[in-house]
């Protein structure tokens, strides 16, 4: 549960006169349910990159619960993100050749020598919670809907207080998309995490409590 405070955020790309993103002020309370919408190229992904610390904040401030991402170097930002942010992406990014369980555990396995006791059990519990019958199934043999469920389980394993999803339903059929949307909302409720979802899907956006509409890098 972290509150967000954005001040004077501006992102410029070389060769472009207008800033790709310009947000003078934005505040979200802890546990908010926020949709980010807008046409393609409006700056949704750029905003998510800034809010999750995937890219460096060069101008302005992005502060989660008092931690200003602009003041963190790349290594500390990675560590902060690993501890606080769960990410779900449009194209899942599961690693073929690994089982569903190993995919859920992979980020934790890569960040420490030895898995903390109980983490594998927690991963199994999460896979069960998202409705995956067999945790040993190889990632490449899952259906697309199942893949996104595994990705949701992976995003939640480190108990993040911020859950960010980038077009989580865009590459799924309506039914699987609705199921994943249900999961995201339910799990955000269960964990109390702040949920930010970039989406084109009006049904998904409509189920969230607040909508940030972006156009040409500006909130409207």
């Amino acid at each position: 549960m972290a509150a967000l405070e954005v001040r004077d955020l501006e992102v410029r790309f070389a060769g472009l006169g207008q800033p790709a993103l310009a947000i003078p002020e934005l505040e979200l309370e802890a546990g908010a349910r926020v949709a980010v919408t807008g046409p393609s190229g409006c700056g949704k992904t750029t905003l998510l990159n800034m809010l999750t610390g995937l890219e460096c904040v060069r101008h302005g401030h992005v502060a989660w619960a008092g931690t200003d991402l602009a003041s963190l170097g790349e290594g500390p930002r990675d560590r902060w993100r690993a501890a606080h942010v769960g990410l779900v992406m449009q194209d899942f990014h599961l690693f073929p050749g690994l089982s569903a369980l190993d995919n859920v555990l992979l980020p934790q396995r890569l960040s420490r020598w030895r898995l903390p006791a109980g983490l594998a059990d927690e991963a199994r519990r999460l896979l069960d919670r998202v409705g995956l019958p067999d945790p040993r199934q190889k990632a490449e043999t899952l259906s697309r809907g199942q893949m996104q469920r595994v990705a949701v389980a992976r995003a939640l394993l480190a108990r993040p207080d911020i859950l960010v999803a980038d077009e989580p339903t865009a590459s799924l059929d309506a039914e699987a998309g609705a199921a994943v949307a249900d999961l995201l909302l339910a799990l955000a409720d269960e964990t109390g995490a702040t949920l930010i979802v970039a989406t084109h899907d009006p049904r998904l956006a409509g189920r969230l409590t607040r909508t940030l509409r972006l156009d040409a890098g500006r909130l409207i």
Partner: peptide, 19 residues
Amino acid sequence: RQIGALRAFGAPRAAVFAI
């Protein structure tokens, strides 16, 4: 993109290097 994803999900840079 895959390597970026590893880091986005929380793998340290050193782990990516080591892999």
